Simulated assay, not measured.
Amino acid sequence: MTAITDFEVKAADGSVASLENYRGKVLLIVNTASKCGFTPQYEGLESLHREFGDRGFEVLAFPCNQFGAQEPGDAAEIANFCSLTYDVTFPVFAKIDVNGPQADPLFEELKAAAPGLLGSKAIKWNFTKFLVDREGRVVSRYAPTTKPEDIRKDIEKLL
């Protein structure tokens, strides 16, 4: 398995961002959308980010428009929405695909390392979450219905 921190992704401004910058941190990686029934989870994600950030925890958000076209905006619109609506301070990266032939390599690795129900690799909907330990290993995968606050104890164990 490749360490998650070995990947490069696109930042919201289109530049290349190395996840190496997060080496040694516990990460919660989430595919997000602004117009989804689960969008209020941004509030819980931000709460976790603020609560545990000083202990080496980061939330990394990756907007995705593959589920019901619920992330139609461009990077500026997405950033504006996250900031104004949920006061998000964690990184929101460039919009990506998480399934299919154009799926981002990071999400291909996440899905391989932590398959879903019955071994399914595909991400079923927005706000699927992956918990990554300080060594860059995927520890758990959480369904979109799992509220961020329900992951708190798992995060604390890794910190």
Rank of each mutant, 00 (worst) to 15 (best):
E46H: 12
G119E: 02
Q70Y: 11
E149V: 00
K95R: 14
S120A: 15
G37D: 13
P148Y: 10
D54Q: 11
A33N: 05
T39W: 09
G68P: 07
S47I: 00
D150K: 04
A114S: 15
K157R: 15
A61N: 08
E51F: 08
C64A: 14
D54K: 14
V138R: 00
A61M: 08
I151A: 02
V16E: 14
F67S: 07
V16H: 14
P148Q: 09
F38E: 05
E71Y: 03
D97T: 11
V9K: 00
D150S: 09
R141I: 09
P101H: 08
L117N: 14
M1V: 01
E109F: 02
N99T: 04
G100D: 15
T89F: 08
T39D: 08
C82S: 09
V132R: 02
Q66V: 05
E8H: 14
E149G: 09
E8S: 13
D154V: 15
E8I: 01
F90R: 05
N99P: 01
T85L: 09
A143I: 03
F90G: 01
T85D: 12
D154P: 14
A114D: 03
D104K: 00
G56R: 01
P63Y: 06
K95S: 13
K129D: 08
P148N: 14
G14N: 08
P115K: 02
K129G: 02
P101G: 07
C36K: 01
V92E: 06
Q66R: 05
V98P: 07
A122F: 06
Y22V: 10
F62W: 00
G100F: 09
L118F: 10
L60V: 04
E135A: 11
T32M: 13
F107V: 04
F62Y: 01
A17M: 13
P72K: 09
N99E: 10
E156Q: 15
A76N: 15
A113M: 03
D74I: 05
F52Q: 07
F93S: 06
G14F: 05
G136P: 05
S47P: 04
N126A: 02
E77Y: 07
N80I: 02
L106G: 01
K121L: 14
G56Y: 06
L117P: 15
P144G: 09
R23Q: 08
T85N: 11
D133H: 06
D104R: 00
P148V: 03
G37T: 08
